[in-house]
Amino acid sequence: MTALAVKGFQAGYDPDLPIVKGVSFAVKKGEAVTVLGPNGAGKSTLIKAIAGQVACLGGQVTLGGDDITGVPSYALAKRGLGFVPQTENIFAQLTIRENLQIASELVEKRRRAGQIDKMFDMFPDLKLRPNDLAGTLSGGQRQMLAAARALLTDPPVLMLDEPSAGLSPKLVGQVFETLARVHAAGVTLILVEQNVRAALGLASRALVLVDGELAHDGPTDALQDSTTLGRLFLGNRTREVAR
């Protein structure tokens, strides 16, 4: 069963200048896929466009078989497509609890309080000062809040844009442990990452995006040796290999 699929997908910020240039792939239900690629390859643009945040300039996206091309992002969130952006992914001027409360409005009324408590249990750091402004959290705690907010609604499909960026190695370990648990619970994951090793550990399949086009799509085992990856990242151009 396909959870999410894109076909001939084009997206960008200027109608005449697509950043994502015709990408096709399908993600199976319960699969964990990582999207890799050099800086500026268009990874963020790709998943922002799937999430309805950037204009789709061509092609098609389906979620669980339904065409969702051009559906606004709030409606996608309601349909169970979770998304954690790379930056500015929490409301700094709202309290931690308010951040979770907004997200909780996507679930039925009677489950809301329970889901918020569940997130507090999953991320105990957030429980310390729930009524403080989210802007007072540290970088790592912000990522936790962003993840908690997305997980709270139990989305069947979750897309994360570099959840480990800027975190200490220890925190990176924590984040990936959490994601592994979420994945084990049956959630379909699409994970953009620069931390290739951690991503390859979690995902069973990797997509490599170079210059807005899909350069590779296959199981992660094949990519474990870094020379293959380096060759893919470089594409035809001379560019520094990503970490």
Partner: peptide, 18 residues
């Protein structure tokens, strides 16, 4: 709450389901 969220960051509000 939704109004304050939109005033801070409208596109993130969409991600949150507003």
């Amino acid at each position: 709450r939704s109004m304050r969220a939109v005033s801070e960051n409208p596109s993130l509000a969409g991600v949150y389901g507003i």
